[in-house]
Amino acid sequence: MLSGHRSWVLILALSLGACGERAAQRKAESVEVPADQVRSQFIGLPNGATIAVEPGSVGEKLAHYLASRDPAPRSFEIGGKQFDDWSSTASPATRAMLPELVQLLKSYPDVRIRFVGHSDGAGDADANQKISEDRANVARQMLVEAGIQEDRIETAGKGMSEPIADNATPDGRARNRRIELIVLAK
């Protein structure tokens, strides 16, 4: 059984999804739903679908960017702990982003993206290059398995060449083990 606030969020999402024609007109209008200090926003997409995003999340930023006239390319840092040390298995938090990213890509069929994999500074440069490429390919494969065309997704690996945090700390290394999403065309 769903908790109280999740039930209301689900009911609201279903009712918003049923209003496809109105959702298409809203394009990037959002509705705020309070739930125990956590707010979700529902963003209407051009194809009539609606996605729920957390305020300030990559999903929200990407949805608003795709609805805008801002030109490509544009990079989005996914953030959070995306991969364990020496692993190319996406974390549950990274996998949780998949449905909203799939919805966005289905709603904007002309969008092409690139996933760029990164690693921390520990270990051999060649091994780090390989794991960064593997991480980007895992992200690509997750989208392909969800129905996004392969030719819309490029991948690259940067190894340990572009850290965003201090590799001297465990938290910094965890932030550096990441994928970055770049919108190439929209």
Rank of each mutant, 00 (worst) to 15 (best):
S132N: 03
N128E: 03
G121W: 02
I148R: 03
N167S: 11
A23L: 04
P99T: 12
G48F: 00
R74F: 07
V31Y: 15
V9K: 01
A23K: 02
G157C: 14
E133D: 13
V58E: 09
D85V: 14
S30I: 10
W86Y: 09
V58M: 11
E154M: 14
A67L: 05
R177N: 03
E154C: 05
M142Q: 09
K81Y: 15
K158T: 10
S91P: 04
K81V: 09
E54C: 11
I131Y: 00
M142N: 06
V138K: 10
L2E: 01
P92Q: 11
L10M: 12
E145T: 09
P55K: 06
A136H: 07
D36G: 07
A18T: 06
R173M: 07
A90T: 06
D110H: 13
D134T: 11
R74N: 13
E32A: 15
L14D: 02
K158N: 14
F42H: 00
Q82K: 11
M1R: 00
N47W: 06
G123C: 12
N137H: 05
G79M: 13
G17I: 00
E154I: 08
N128V: 02
M142E: 04
V116D: 03
H5N: 10
H5T: 06
P99Y: 05
K158P: 01
Q82Y: 15
L12G: 05
C19D: 02
A168I: 02
P109V: 02
W8Y: 14
M97K: 15
D126R: 04
V58K: 05
K158G: 08
N176T: 09
I164S: 10
R178A: 02
N176R: 04
E54T: 11
G157P: 06
I148S: 07
H5I: 01
D85A: 15
A165R: 04
S88N: 07
K130G: 08
T169F: 04
A165S: 06
L98S: 07
D124L: 05
Q103N: 15
D126H: 11
E150W: 02
Q141R: 07
P71C: 07
S91I: 08
V31S: 14
Q129K: 12
A146M: 06
L12T: 08
W8H: 14
A18F: 12
D171P: 04
N176I: 03
I43F: 02
H64G: 03
V9Y: 08
H5W: 10
K27T: 15
W8D: 12
